[in-house]
Write a protein that binds this DNA or RNA. Sequence first.
DNA 1: AAATGACGGGG
DNA 2: GTGTACGTCATTT
Length: 807
Amino acid sequence: MRGILLDVEIAEEEEHPVVRLVLKDGSRKVMVLDHAFSHYFYALGEDPEKLSELISGVEAEYRERKVRPKAVEAVRRTIRGKEVRAVRIFLSHPRDMQPLRRAVRELPGVNSLYEFDIPPNRSYILDRGLVPMEGVNVRVEEDGEGAPVMRASSPPVRSGGEVGELRIMSFDIEVYNPGGSPRVDRDPVIMISLSDNAGYRKVLTWKRHEGSPEYVECLGSEREMIERFVEIVRERDPDILLGYNTDMFDFPYLRDRAKMLKVRLSLGIDGSDVTFRRHRFASAARIRGRIHVDVFSMVDFMATIGSIRLIHYTLEDVYRHFTGKEKPDFEFTEMPGAWEEGGEPWMRFIEYSMSDAEATLEVGRILLPLFIELSRVVRQTLFDVSRMTPGQLVEWLLISEARSRGELVPPRPAGEEFEERLEETYAGAYVMEPVKGLHENLVVYDFRSLYPSIIVTHNIDPSTLNCECCRGRGTRVPGLGYWFCVEREGFIPATLKKLIRERAKLKEELKHHPRESVEYRSLNARQTAYKIIANSAYGMLGYSRARWYSKECAESVTSFGRHYIQTTIDMSRAMGFDVVYGDTDSLFCKLNGKTKDDALRFLKKVNESLPGIIELELEGFYPRGVFITKKRYAMIDEAGRMVVKGLEFVRRDWAAIAKKTQEEVLRAILRDGSPERAAEVIKRVTRDIVEGRVELEDLVIYTQLKMPIESYRSVGPHVVAAKRLRALGYTVEPGMMIAYVVVRGPGSISERSYPLEMMEKREPDPDYYISNQVLPAVMRIMEVLGYREDDLRFTRERQTGIERFMG
DNA sequence: AAATGACGGGG
DNA sequence: GTGTACGTCATTT
């Protein structure tokens, strides 16, 4: 049979490890078991023959069981391109890795171990030469009529080909949240919405209110609703299940509720339960036979690589960014009331829930093609790739490349080595101190993929660094004593060069397809995937946890980078452009009365002077921008879109009044070009605060209680508020969201913070809200426009005649 | 000045 | 994969 490879995992059959491949064959989805699989690692030492023999006899203990190698062989491999002889040690079971690895390390004559830290399913994909999200051919023993599980009778092989139509479904849950944030032991799931790419729309709930839309299905209880959710997912049988922050919220919440209600979350195609890979800071929910993709993690990735830049990454904001459309909003504080009382709020609640699932599906369908290509390029599953950082993507591409060259994969650093790396520092990119203030008519240039271009152009790699063969004639790094080989191409530059070449070919091919065609979209996604991975290579070189970390290479890259940007800044000044700001690989110039044509002529001139594949590009024209400090600025483009960088410090532990004011201020400056209007906004707000005309809800600060009250060594405002809440008789426990207000009076901020529940007879402290909330949120911006705090602060004493008149 | 604790997405 | 993000900010100590 032939099918698209959706997933690969390690399973067990009668104590024996087996690989389970999930294949989609037309409309049928099957699981194929490959028993011909053996996990392994390598040992290096003085005398490989002797070592092989020694290792063959090694015995370790694991849970009171004796563990021995399944097989041992002496092999030839390379390390940094140099041939080495190694001992390859096969395991009977992947779980034998830790005990055997420890035992082998203790043996005399063993110098180092390799590839003990490559997960077995990932290793399998590479060794079989398979490509996830592409075709696989495999001969199977049919286990009966249409059985979903089959046994491979010969090894699966890559067959290429396109992914056919995949069924994609999204879902979202709504939770009862009377205490602000939901408490999983008490607060039920009250709605589950679903949407799929075949047009299915559904909101499940378990309370009947008047006049619900036709897509609502009302169940008898939370338990029945969850059962129905599971039933629908299995019936509609999506290949990809999407959600927004489902790794961290929906699935963990559903899991806990399902456990309490004694209902199984059996979403797998074989009826298996959702499983969780848990970290302290992250988790991932896995469903057998379907790819659970958390759209938030894809969005977060796009934000990390700078491909999208929003102030917030809520579903609402992200949906607006990607589709240009608005979705209905619904305040989470309205939810309990809507649930209990129905009416108009209930209708809006349902529409909101439905729109969450639909928006997730829409955004997911926009992003998936890119992540499917990333999955193919680095040859790892979509489940894993959609959760990787850019550095991990590069690393997995290199691991794949290393495996096919017989190069041993360096281990992830641990212990001392890692600690030492953390200590190592080196000079980074050049960042110019901006010409602070508001500027008009800007042109922005940047070097196309500067760092990968440098790595390729100058052959930067751990194996080509300070090589013997090029002493005195290799490529010198500006300002550093290093050189790089001009004879042999390094492993990393070679890998990047392939990516860059392939990408150039794809971009050429793109020209022959209309922008809206399927071919264009798929080729475009692929070229973007190449670009993303190439651009992440430098970050990996300098990341202390990376396998191919090299401080010398990383600092050589930044040194070349500084050289090119500085040279370009000098050239632009010589041409009469005012450089307002420059960072790493981009420069921001004022047109200064020159035309867009002049800007293009400058570009041409610079490019004539650059070596290899290094190239400057025109990023765009911006009518207005406000520059604050290094890394902090905001601009508006010709289409009226705001680009905000480094100012995203307004968070939920800030009062709403601070968030609202900051947004209004940026709009006034960039859209209207009027700092004066921005100043008026601030004066109006501070005055409203002083005169008590701001709604209490705009002054509330929400901070989560992360520990039991007693565990706090440092008693912050939310802890004091929580204590006061407890004294009132409320149960206060970790995870609770504390809503508090800072009131007038003597003492520290903490001493003056009261829970919202105690605010009836108390007065908020205007000074705190002005000095610690509103002004910090806007001052950084206003400062560079020549305003001082006192110009913007409304106080009765300082009120000037004109203000009294205006007021 | 150093230490501590919280932010993100979700409801 | 058995790991403990990550860089930044406010407030307390």
